[in-house]
């Protein structure tokens, strides 16, 4: 049982700040270290793809579902990939029941933008018949336990869930879209693996992967999503402000952190192999 409170005590604030000044973190990490990731895919039988991911104490269940619909008129040969997030009241006393609040919308949006702009999901490959039928891919995230930095956790988990997805392959017939009897693998539609890298800021101290206490003490954070060589989205959030030099430094750190994560996590291992290769 944890003692999670919206009002964080001055003692805890002071403790976190004083240690950060000495480049120490209360959970024993260095400033630029991630907590441990744990990833399991293919756990939800009813979903086309799924991932149970933990980052430290933060745990998110992610499922991929599909639908076939008509394309938007301005993109007649492109499918759609949407991301949704729910911060379940099950996961934290800080989460309330009711329609999605700002925090869950931000989580979904930041993960979504990271994926979208990196051309991660190749929307043209989600087309069954131009003007007629395209896939709509749903990535739905449910937060099971919240201990900080849901964005990075959700971003990695979404990729793993997508990679592990096995979606019925469609063909166009007189009667509309029909199943070919084959499947397409998530990896066939993913081009890049953009990772969301989030930094917290407390006073003028910057650090990677804020845990819950750090998140509650900090005035804001910045998420930089990167592929191997491109920045695909940036989201500054909270009331804090960043110096231009800080952003320059953090963007460099983001690539370093992402490279390391890519190597440590080896996300392609979660790809569903439809044919034996």
């Amino acid at each position: 049982m944890m003692d999670v409170k919206r009002i964080i005590s001055k003692i805890e604030k002071g403790y976190i700040k004083n240690n950060l000044k000495k480049e120490q973190r209360v959970d024993g990490r260095g400033l630029w270290d991630y907590r441990d990731f744990e990833i399991k895919t293919g756990i939800i039988t009813a979903a086309e793809g799924s991932c149970d991911i933990s980052l430290g104490g933060t745990r998110i269940m992610i499922g991929v579902k599909y639908d076939v619909g008509t394309p938007f008129p301005d993109t007649p040969d492109e499918g759609v990939c949407t991301v949704m997030a729910e911060l379940l009241p099950l996961a934290s006393p800080l989460f309330e029941r009711g329609p999605p609040d700002e925090e869950s919308i931000e989580l979904a949006r930041v993960v979504d933008r990271g994926i979208r702009h990196a051309d991660c999901v190749q929307t043209k490959k989600l087309c069954i018949q131009k003007d007629e039928a395209v896939y709509i891919i749903f990535i739905d995230m449910y937060v099971i336990n919240h201990s900080g930095n849901m964005i990075d956790c959700g971003a990695v988990g979404s990729l793993a869930a997508l990679l592990s997805a096995k979606i019925p392959q469609g063909k166009w017939t007189e009667n509309g879209p029909e199943w070919t009897g084959e499947y397409i693998s998530g990896k066939d539609i993913i081009n890049e693996l953009p990772l969301a890298i989030t930094f917290g800021k407390i006073d003028d101290m910057l650090f990677l992967d804020p845990n819950l206490a750090e998140e509650l003490v900090s005035d804001g954070r910045i998420t930089i999503s990167v592929t191997k060589d491109q920045i695909t989205s940036i989201q500054k959030s909270g009331s804090t402000t960043f110096e231009i030099d800080e952003i320059k430094m953090l963007s460099k750190k983001a690539f370093e952190a992402a490279d390391k994560l890519r190597e440590d996590l080896n996300l392609w291992q979660y790809a569903e192999n439809i044919e034996e290769e």
């Binding site: 049982m1 944890m2 003692d3 005590s9 003692i11 805890e12 002071g14 403790y15 209360v26």
Partner: peptide, 11 residues
């Protein structure tokens, strides 16, 4: 009032 240190919680 308590100053400094850290508070943890147990069952």
């Amino acid at each position: 009032k308590k100053m400094g240190g850290i508070i943890i919680s147990i069952d």
